[in-house]
């Protein structure tokens, strides 16, 4: 039973990690907690069923929905956050703006799709595999493997490519990065794009797993992914991954030990304990705040 919940937690945790990366990347570059990220996540699954509804076929619908969500990320930055940066407004203005945007997106989804819970189509013919007595569905395996591959691609992109080097430079010092000839606004927009597409993919995976979607689905998942990012050390990529796994597994174990109605609070109890022991998170750097 414990093994079962660990497997459940690992697959869900990997998907949390994908969302957490979005918080972490944006925080790294702008020192901003992007509270609209949960709503962007919800938008992802809705965009995909929108395209499925127009008979695009499953794979094209997922691709289009994911890209559209990436574009939404860029749009949020361009329309609402870039003007604030340009006017050198305090960080708190951007923060409250992202909270506002999160509700705007949620309400738009309610207007377009209705606020009730809707079934999300089965992505695969779900079969059960038995590993060491635990029952694992193909959907869980797909969720785990897809997330691992995506996180590996993201890691390579950031550590091994020119645009990734530029992202790390902007993260360390935006002004000096501009003096290197880097178009910093493009890099910031690109970061929002990456955050958007990884949230959308996580959204498809998690909706496919629970076979359900609704406009406010991003609220709790968004908070948990944010907790995962902070737990791992916000701004650190592998921190977000480990954080996601810790939150996912502890949630699974909590469901077995205390009953599934308490699973949400356990994730946050773990977060609080970790932060008391290591205030910067598991892999966080001290003094990350910009002067």
């Amino acid at each position: 039973m414990i093994l079962q919940q660990i497997f459940n937690g690992l697959s869900l945790g990997m998907a949390y990690a994908l969302i957490a990366v979005g918080y972490s990347l944006v925080f790294g570059i702008l020192r901003l907690v992007n509270f609209s990220h949960g709503a962007v996540y919800a938008f992802g699954a809705h965009a995909v069923i929108f395209f499925i509804g127009y008979h695009f076929g499953l794979i094209p619908a997922i691709l289009l929905g994911v890209l559209l969500t990436g574009a939404l990320g860029v749009l949020i930055d361009r329309v609402a956050l870039y003007p604030l940066r340009k006017k050198k407004s305090p960080g708190i203005s951007s923060l409250i703006t992202t909270i506002g945007i999160s509700y705007i997106i949620q309400n738009l989804l309610m207007m377009g799709f209705g606020s009730e819970k809707k079934p999300f189509p089965k992505l695969f013919d779900n079969r059960i595999v038995h590993i060491l007595g635990a029952r694992i569905s193909t959907m869980q395996i797909i969720m785990f493997v897809t997330s691992v591959i995506l996180l590996a691609i993201l890691t390579f992109l950031i550590k091994g490519t020119k645009i990734g080097l530029a992202m790390r430079a902007v993260e360390q010092n935006e002004k000096n990065a501009g003096l290197m000839g880097i178009n910093t606004n493009f890099i910031i927009a690109f970061t929002f794009f990456l955050g958007g597409i990884s949230a959308a993919i996580a959204s498809v995976l998690i909706s496919g797993y629970y076979e359900i979607l609704y406009p406010t689905m991003g609220f709790m998942v968004g908070l948990k992914a944010f907790a995962a990012a902070v737990l791992g050390g916000i701004g650190v990529l592998h921190g977000a991954i480990v954080g996601g796994l810790v939150i996912g597994v502890s949630e699974g174990l909590a469901a077995t030990w205390f009953g599934s109605q308490y699973r949400d609070s356990v994730a946050f109890i773990i977060l609080i304990i970790v932060l008391i022991v290591r205030p910067a998170g598991l892999f966080g750097r001290k003094g990350i705040e910009k002067v």
Binding site: K162, L165, A166, R168, A169, Q172, N173, N176, A177, M180, G181, I182
Partner: peptide, 18 residues
């Protein structure tokens, strides 16, 4: 003014970004 958490070589590569 160098990027402290990048290597010497990465700093040089950024100088040639354009």
């Amino acid at each position: 003014g160098v990027f402290p958490r990048l290597t010497v070589e990465e700093n040089l590569l950024l100088g040639a970004y354009t």
